[in-house]
Simulated assay, not measured.
Amino acid sequence: MITIITLLLLGSLVSNLSFTASVNVRIVNGNEATAHSRPYMVSVQRNRRHVCGGFLISDQFVLTAAHCRNNNEILTVVAGANKLSILKTRRSVSSYNKHPEYNTDPRTPDIADLMILKLNKKVELNNKIKTIPIPTTPVNISVGTACSVAGWGSVENGGPASPTLREANVKIMDDTICAQWGQRFVAPQMMCVYGRGGACEGDLGGPLVCDNTAVAVASFVRDNSCNNAYQHNVYTNISAFLPWIQSILPPK
């Protein structure tokens, strides 16, 4: 019976996808973003090389993924860039705030994959550098909701970063399908998406944007496979961790 249900769920999913398994699920499969159309996006860099996406939630704080920093690495943040070769505003990081539950349980290593970076100096908000709102109360995004992702990530597994910001449309997937992946997917702390494009290496840490709000942070691609239509992107649900986020940010 379980096998039959599983096959029915997968069949339902496949019937809703307008592409075959040979289509690459990565942002390279999307489109080049219009210059500065996503002014909240930042490039998180190590040794001045892009490693992760991130986004401004205030003029001095960036939300990204906890796995984007190993040990005591020094990171910097570039804001206001569309092409990474044309840098606009670089800031050092004065404090790194990883969620305390991240990577504490080997059975669920991706739980709470969130990190808040405090910049050493506020960025000047303008038409090329802006913040994006995050939920202020817990939200439940309906299955099938149209959202979008963006980043400077790899064009293929292990490939080079894209020099220009790219974007793709995705849809929220049913948690019951994601849950078949086992303990690594945990709802409601996580959500997963599918589409003709999506996140790959270098896009992780970036936002899942639904209705002009950043609702989740790109965490991982199942089996690290960016070029398989059935290995969907998994995101950390921001609204599941609001008390911690609010404890880091200064009071308004």
Rank of each mutant, 00 (worst) to 15 (best):
T6W: 15
L7S: 08
L9K: 07
L13I: 09
F19C: 08
S22E: 15
V23Q: 15
V23M: 13
V25A: 14
V25H: 13
R26D: 13
N29C: 00
T34A: 14
T34R: 11
H36K: 03
S37Q: 10
R38F: 15
V42K: 00
V44R: 03
H50T: 02
G54N: 05
L63I: 09
N70T: 12
N71E: 15
N72F: 11
E73L: 07
L75R: 01
L75Y: 10
T76Y: 05
V77G: 02
A81C: 04
K83C: 06
K83P: 00
L84F: 08
I86H: 12
K88S: 11
T89I: 13
R91M: 07
V93G: 04
S95T: 12
K98Q: 11
H99K: 00
E101I: 10
N103E: 13
D105Q: 06
D105K: 05
D105I: 01
D110R: 10
D113A: 07
I116P: 08
L119Q: 05
V123A: 02
E124V: 14
K128T: 08
I129Y: 07
K130C: 02
I132D: 13
P133I: 07
I134M: 08
T137F: 14
N140M: 09
I141R: 00
S142D: 15
V143N: 10
G144A: 00
A146G: 07
C147S: 03
V149K: 06
V149M: 11
A150N: 03
G159Q: 02
S162E: 08
P163K: 01
L165R: 03
L165T: 03
R166D: 02
A168C: 02
A168D: 09
V170C: 02
I172F: 11
T176R: 13
A179K: 12
G182R: 05
Q183T: 11
Q183N: 11
V186T: 12
P188E: 10
M191T: 06
Y194N: 09
G197Q: 01
G197M: 04
A199R: 00
C200L: 05
G206E: 14
C210G: 00
C210M: 07
T213H: 03
A214E: 10
A214V: 01
V215S: 03
F220G: 02
D223W: 10
D223V: 05
C226D: 11
N227T: 13
N233H: 04
N237G: 02
I238P: 02
L242C: 04
P243D: 11
W244T: 00
I245S: 01
Q246S: 07
P250L: 04
K252T: 10
